[in-house]
């Protein structure tokens, strides 16, 4: 019973962050499940990717409704990202958890600082389409993102959105929408691999998903009440703490 409450809290935090700040859930779920709930890193990752598949139903729908998804790009890049996900998820069987934890720590610190710094919200007025020019590199980056996402249990939006925005030249909101829909397919590939390898802890998945549902709704509500700066600073501190706890042991072993 206390465990269930902690799992719900993990999902709630991920949903809250997603609903309020537009961050993906994996970057919060994996360290929360590992550090706070005390689960093994390799148990936390499959739970996270499964919850991400569920979360993508709601997150991408908002962008679809507003016509802010490049559907052709979704299909092309999803093919390569899914292949990367399958590779990454299978690699996680052989890659030591300490290595994955260290890579995740770097990703967490990067995300925490980008969250605090904030993104430039200036939207492009003219649509610049560089998809032919940067096709090969985008395909490679989609594949690479897939590997990292499958290995670390994250969606991959932290890499995808800058690729779509800065390289392809999509407007920022369309880049986010396109990424949100793609993540649903790629996380499904990872989840399938983990499911077939019997790596998913079923007693953790359901409460985490319930937490995401509540957190997502709360995040939307919080957006009307709290100042973004307060929440950003709060999550920045939490993420740095999680990064420290997640990376300390593997780093000490390495040194």
């Amino acid at each position: 019973m206390p465990d269930l409450a902690v799992y719900i809290l993990c999902g709630l935090s991920a949903g809250l962050l997603g609903g309020y700040l537009g961050l993906g859930g994996g970057i919060v779920m994996v360290p929360f499940l590992t550090v706070i709930a005390g689960l093994d890193f390799k148990v936390a990752v499959p739970v996270s990717v499964t919850a991400i598949v569920f979360n993508s139903f709601a997150s991408s729908n908002e962008y679809l409704k507003r016509g802010m998804v490049d559907l052709e790009l979704v299909i092309i890049l999803a093919i390569f990202m899914v292949m990367g996900n399958i590779t990454g998820s299978n690699l996680s069987q052989v890659v030591p958890a300490e290595f994955s934890r260290l890579v995740f720590t770097v990703l967490l610190v990067y995300t925490a600082f980008s969250l605090l710094k904030g993104r430039k919200t200036t939207e492009r007025l003219a649509f610049s389409d560089n998809r032919r020019k940067f096709f090969t590199i985008c395909v490679f980056l989609a594949f690479f993102t897939g590997i990292m996402a499958g290995l670390l249990g994250v969606g991959g939006g932290v890499i995808l959105v800058p690729v779509l925005y800065l390289m392809i030249g999509l407007p920022l909101t369309t880049a986010r929408g396109t990424s949100a829909l793609m993540i649903g397919f790629s996380a499904a590939a990872s989840s399938t691999v983990y499911f077939l390898n019997d790596s998913i802890n079923f007693s953790v998945v359901a409460p985490v998903i319930l937490g995401i549902i509540i957190g997502g709704k709360l995040g939307g509500f919080l957006g009307t009440l709290a100042k973004p700066v307060v929440v950003k600073v709060m999550f920045f501190i939490v993420m740095l703490y999680l990064a420290f706890r997640l990376g300390y042991d593997p780093l000490m072993e390495l040194l």
Partner: peptide, 14 residues
């Protein structure tokens, strides 16, 4: 039921 729920989510994505 959780197992079938996960299968459901994956089939829905497909």
């Amino acid at each position: 039921l959780t197992v079938w729920g996960i299968v459901g989510i994956l089939v829905s994505t497909l």
